[in-house]
Amino acid sequence: MADNVKPKVRVPKTASAGEVITLKTLISHPMESGQRKDGDGNLIPRSIINRFTCDFNEQNVIDVTMEPAISTNPYFEFEAIVPETGAFTFTWYDDDGSVYTEVQEITVG
């Protein structure tokens, strides 16, 4: 497993029904492309996060496939409409099988 993987998300705490809100996510990850060689000329094996999803109350908001050309510490910013009070679940899937999850609740009032 890659070291020091730490997801961060920014979700507003409250919103009005049907409002379009901006979500920001960042995960620290080296995103080793699998193209680089070490000092001895051996390929450094690929180790990236290959998929990122965001769900709101079991309903999918965004589902992203990532490829090796993506930068370290991938940052995603996107918008979502919130119809009701609930929770956003953010999930990152690592090449090595690790899954990182972060949940943030939002109150619609």
Partner: peptide
Amino acid sequence: DFENPAAIAVDEGLA
């Protein structure tokens, strides 16, 4: 702070 790219280095310092 979410836009500040130093946050990752700060996390490492915190560790």
